[in-house]
């Protein structure tokens, strides 16, 4: 733990060495998420809502997704850019350190530029809250935290699939991108607008519905599923489970493959 903290601080120090470039790239991140925000705003302006969701509610979903995703890109860059480490020999260096590999991957690459994305996502969320005049309770705040945390690990799990694939072929990364960026694109809207196959995919395979949409829908007082409230609180656990499974696959399939074939 002390190692992780120290390693991340080190990353910030490194980034601080190139202040101008860092600032530029943070702004670029702002603009990029801002582009998505613009898209949602234009759509909501044209259609006034989506299914039984109001424009503000859609903005709320959008904010949660962008904020969480930017957090993942910030802390999980070592996982999402894993194919570079294999090519560049950095993974070998990680194998030579007596710290868990996943901890090293997270600690070695803190991408603070994603703060830009977080800001825009957070602003969208705040704006939605203001317009919705949500009645906040401790339970709802807890739900929001759980939803973010669960989705955070779910997305890291998706990154891990990419990382596992990159042990086998660096070229097929593009194909796996669909999981992460496709997941973000599709699930920034509540899952109930999609037909059954996509709903099943996002509920039971990549469980954005459980981690994010169900708790958020309860916060908005429009529950997606008719389930007891404790199950709503428990649903984000699906994200942790997803991450755990993918971490195991990464280790057992990916790392083992690497060590037996080498590079």
């Amino acid at each position: 733990m002390r190692y992780l903290y120290h390693a991340m601080r080190m990353q910030l120090k490194c980034a601080a060495q190139y202040r101008a470039s860092f600032l530029m790239q943070s702004i670029a991140q702002c603009v990029m998420v801002g582009g998505d925000l613009l898209a949602v705003t234009v759509l909501m302006n044209r259609f006034r809502g989506l299914g039984h969701w109001s424009a503000e509610e859609i903005l709320f979903f959008f904010g949660v997704m962008q904020l969480t995703f930017a957090l993942c890109e910030c802390f999980g860059r070592g996982i999402s850019n894993f194919s570079y480490y294999i090519g560049g020999g950095e993974f070998d260096a990680m194998l030579l350190r007596p710290q868990p590999l996943l901890v090293q991957m997270i600690g070695n690459r803190l991408d603070a530029r994603r703060l830009g994305g977080m800001l825009v996502g957070g602003a969208a969320l705040a704006m939605a809250c203001l317009r919705l005049r949500l009645h906040w309770t401790a339970g709802k705040a807890l739900l929001l935290a759980l939803a973010s945390l669960g989705s955070f690990f779910l997305i890291l799990g998706l990154f891990l699939i990419e990382a596992t694939v990159s042990f086998f072929s660096v070229k097929s990364i593009e194909m796996v991108n669909v999981l992460t960026y496709g997941g973000r694109q599709a699930c920034q809207y509540p899952v109930d607008i999609y037909p059954r196959p996509l709903r099943l995919l996002f509920t039971w395979v990549a469980p954005f519905a459980l981690c994010m949409h169900l708790p958020v829908s309860v916060i908005l007082d429009k529950p997606l599923m008719d389930v007891p409230i404790w199950q709503v609180y428990a649903a984000p656990l699906a994200g942790f489970a997803f991450f755990a499974v993918m971490a195991l696959v990464w280790r057992r399939v990916g790392v083992t493959h690497y060590r037996s074939t080498g590079s």
Binding site: A7, M10, K13, C14, Q17, Y18
Partner: peptide, 15 residues
Amino acid sequence: WDVPILDSFELLRDV
């Protein structure tokens, strides 16, 4: 690469 080597050594202490 970008930090004083003493910082690197401190991180290695924790590693």
